[in-house]
């Protein structure tokens, strides 16, 4: 099909999801609800002192992009922001 043809010629296109993705944290908003840790324990932790979020991996591998976005949408306080890394 045309898609396979194109891939053969120009290589696989980088889908948006496959680009590098950055996680940004607005820590002052965090209320320690822990949804992020529950959703993606490899990306987020909670500090022992105040229970607020600790970012373990600001640039998750593509197979964890979905989880990062899920954490962004489930965080009750808007602490987690996932931004496509444009450079």
């Amino acid at each position: 099909m045309w898609y396979d043809e194109m891939v053969r010629v120009v290589g696989r296109p980088k889908l948006v999801e496959e680009r590098i993705m950055r996680i940004e944290i607005h820590r002052e908003r965090c209320i320690g609800a822990g949804m992020c840790v529950l959703t993606a324990p490899d990306l987020f932790d909670q500090s022992e002192d105040d229970g607020c979020v600790v970012l373990l991996n600001p640039e998750p591998a593509p197979d964890r992009h979905e989880a990062a976005k899920q954490a962004e949408s489930l965080c009750p306080s808007g602490t987690i922001e996932v931004v496509p890394d444009e450079d």
Binding site: C30, G34, L38, D50, G51
Partner: peptide, 15 residues
């Protein structure tokens, strides 16, 4: 709210 909540969140973490 923030002041009180932050005194407690450390006690209720997932871990």
């Amino acid at each position: 709210h923030t002041r009180y909540r932050h005194l407690l969140t450390g006690q209720f973490t997932v871990r």
